[in-house]
Amino acid sequence: MSIYNFSAKSMNGQDICLDNYKDKVILIVNTASQCGFTFQYEDLQRLYDRYKEKDFVILGFPCNQFAGQEPDDNDKVQAFCTLRYGVSFPMFQKVNVRDEGAHPLFEYLASTKPFEGFDESHPVAKVLIPLLKEKHPEYLFGDAVRWNFTKFLIDKKGNVLKRYEATTDPTDMEKDIELLLKF
């Protein structure tokens, strides 16, 4: 099995089979517009701009499961991403990424690459970890996505190679991306 066995709805409602991204290095990210990590859109877009001509793509999946940080409809989410951060990588309609009703792609991703911990030295982690312990202790168990801006790196054959938590900034993934692109 690979990510190519899954599909999702693009922002315009079209069903997109992920095998459309065969032979590309893919970064799949669950996103939110009102999150402490929303600033990562900027670096994600930089990565996309830097490597898109070299068979690299980012796929964004907005999610409202974490503290209601993506409350708007898909059109407003798309407008926010485009106007505020210049996002031009493919964005998909909002999905659930954990628990009952989770999109099968995210169930697969999380089961393939389990949670390995947050970078507790990240500035936002100082807020995130206490918040999870106090308000969402259920998110601290299992391998499901734990917060917005969890990222999964996929090789050109559709295999999930690495999982990065919200506390990993996109620029810190660049060497891994370049290795897969054979720089």
Rank of each mutant, 00 (worst) to 15 (best):
N5G: 12
F6I: 09
A8E: 08
A8V: 05
A8L: 07
Q14R: 14
I16G: 01
I16L: 07
D19T: 07
Y21C: 05
K22T: 11
K24R: 14
V25M: 04
I26T: 07
I28P: 04
I28D: 06
T31G: 13
T31M: 11
S33M: 10
C35G: 14
G36R: 06
F37G: 10
T38P: 06
F39I: 15
Q40M: 15
D43S: 13
D43W: 00
L47E: 03
Y48L: 02
Y48V: 02
Y48A: 02
D49F: 02
K52Q: 15
E53C: 02
K54H: 12
D55Q: 13
F56K: 02
F56Y: 09
I58T: 07
I58Y: 06
G60P: 11
G60Q: 04
G60V: 06
F61D: 10
P62N: 09
P62V: 08
N64E: 11
Q65D: 14
F66G: 09
F66K: 02
F66A: 10
F66H: 07
A67W: 05
Q69K: 07
P71I: 06
D72E: 15
D72M: 11
D73Q: 11
N74M: 10
D75M: 06
K76M: 15
K76L: 15
V77K: 03
V77M: 13
Q78V: 12
Q78W: 08
Q78N: 09
A79K: 04
T82L: 08
R84L: 10
G86A: 10
G86S: 12
S88R: 12
S88D: 15
F89V: 14
P90F: 03
M91P: 05
Q93V: 09
Q93L: 09
K94Y: 04
V95M: 05
V95G: 12
V97T: 11
V97N: 04
R98Q: 15
D99L: 13
D99R: 11
E100R: 06
H103S: 06
E107L: 15
A110R: 01
S111L: 08
E116A: 00
E116P: 01
G117N: 06
F118G: 01
E120W: 01
S121L: 09
S121I: 03
H122W: 02
V124P: 00
V124E: 15
V124I: 14
A125R: 01
A125C: 08
K126E: 12
K126W: 08
L128Q: 08
L128T: 05
I129G: 06
L131N: 15
L132G: 08
L132F: 03
E134K: 13
E134W: 03
E134Y: 07
H136K: 08
P137V: 03
E138C: 07
F141G: 14
G142T: 10
A144L: 07
V145S: 04
R146C: 05
W147S: 04
W147P: 09
F149M: 09
F152Y: 14
F152K: 03
F152W: 05
K156D: 09
K156H: 08
K157R: 07
G158S: 10
V160S: 01
L161K: 13
K162E: 15
K162S: 10
Y164C: 00
Y164F: 15
E165T: 00
E165K: 00
A166L: 01
T167V: 00
D169M: 00
P170S: 03
D172K: 07
E174A: 14
E174W: 01
D176K: 02
I177M: 04
E178V: 07
L179D: 14
L180M: 11
F183I: 10
F183L: 11
F183N: 10
